[in-house]
Design a binder for these strands. Structure first.
Lengths: 201, 201
DNA sequence: TGATTTCTGGAATGAATGTTCCAGAAAGAC
DNA sequence: GTCTTTCTGGAACATTCATTCCAGAAATCA
């Protein structure tokens, strides 16, 4: 790092750091921390073993960076969905619906990476717990703003503590994602969603 | 096994199988499947390494048996709490309250073993997924019966699809347990519980 | 071209893993 | 006492793991 500033003539990195991190995230997302081996990561990231260690540090450090990336990418999606003009209730139905459909589709059921990380590591790894907390707070905030807008636009009644409702919705989303890992029964998942969203009425 | 039936003269098992399994369950519950080493299991179970393999088979098989035990033990607790005569709403408040207090106490936050197992393995291990499903169905049934009683006794209104509400409550419990792994903020958790239980009003 | 740095692939390392083998002690049934 | 079986502790095994080392090829900039 220092030498490059002093005498900057060398080969550039060939791979795209973000793209490699994205791939790493997918592996950790599917397999979890412990079950994901460095060999697997190397293969899916498409970079050299040495490059992995040079660029991201060790496995644990890479995991935390993957968590950060997940938050950015998925957080952006959540944000965009909820800030989109139009019915807030409709946006929430869509949000929960995406989870249900992802579970019923033939693909892999990875759940929520942050939820998985919380379940697997938060009790044991302070950094993971902090990142999970941060993600929770960010999602809660996005939900809260959406609810505020819903109230402002008359779609949501004023009798509720919207902060509490936002927290409830985040918790429900995590519960649903967990359920969706265990069952592919559409009726069950839709029951959960229907009752969850009924608190907005 | 066969020889014992033909010629039953030998030493008896010295340790209590259920007790050892209970200990194994605690290890898996705290650490998850991958992170729990056989060495750790041997130590906490208080039995010999060989006895572990003789009695429970390999690590994976032991894990599945621990899951079964969890379901029996915790399932019984859930059942007893919900079947206890008196207010159903009160019982549910108590149920959710236990989770909140466990999270705020100084102890380890293990969450729900079945939830942990679902998160870590259900996507990859069919047997785990099936056991998780079974547990879900059993808990749902207990909740459903409690709700039916609440309706019969006039505590819960008749407008609801109680099957759906039972599923919702189970999902919420899982969501809450996950949240409780990441945060120790009482207000946050109580917000979630309050909104969750408000669907019964 | 020459200097310098990074990339790449593979080998090497050392620790930890799950599992099995062994030999002796202990305890029931005859 | 004599079997027979299980228990116990420890060693042995093979595999996998995360991580590091190495040497050559590639690429940048002077």
């Amino acid at each position: 790092l220092r030498t490059r500033l002093i005498d900057p003539m060398a080969r550039h990195k060939e791979f795209d750091r973000d793209e490699a991190l994205q791939r790493a995230m997918e592996v950790f997302w599917s397999r979890g921390y412990e079950a994901a081996s460095v060999g697997e990561l190397v293969k899916h990231m498409g970079i050299n073993r040495q490059s992995l260690y040079d660029t991201f540090g060790d496995k644990h450090s890479l995991y935390l960076q993957a968590l950060d990336r997940y938050r950015e990418v998925e957080g952006r999606k959540l944000f965009e969905l909820l800030e989109r003009p139009g019915s807030v209730k409709r946006a929430l139905r869509q949000l929960f619906g995406v989870v249900v459909e992802a579970s019923l589709g033939g693909g892999e059921r990875r759940g929520c990476f942050v939820g998985n990380a919380t379940s697997e590591l938060a009790g044991r790894c302070r950094e993971t717990a902090e990142k999970a907390c941060g993600n929770m707070a960010a999602a809660e905030e996005a939900l809260y703003r959406a609810l505020l807008r819903g109230k402002r636009e008359g779609e949501i009644g004023g009798g509720r503590d919207l902060r509490a409702v936002a927290r409830f919705l985040y918790s429900s989303l995590q519960g649903l994602q967990l359920m969706s890992k265990a069952t592919r029964d559409r009726k069950t998942l839709e029951d959960v969603v229907r009752v969850t969203l009924s608190v907005l009425d």
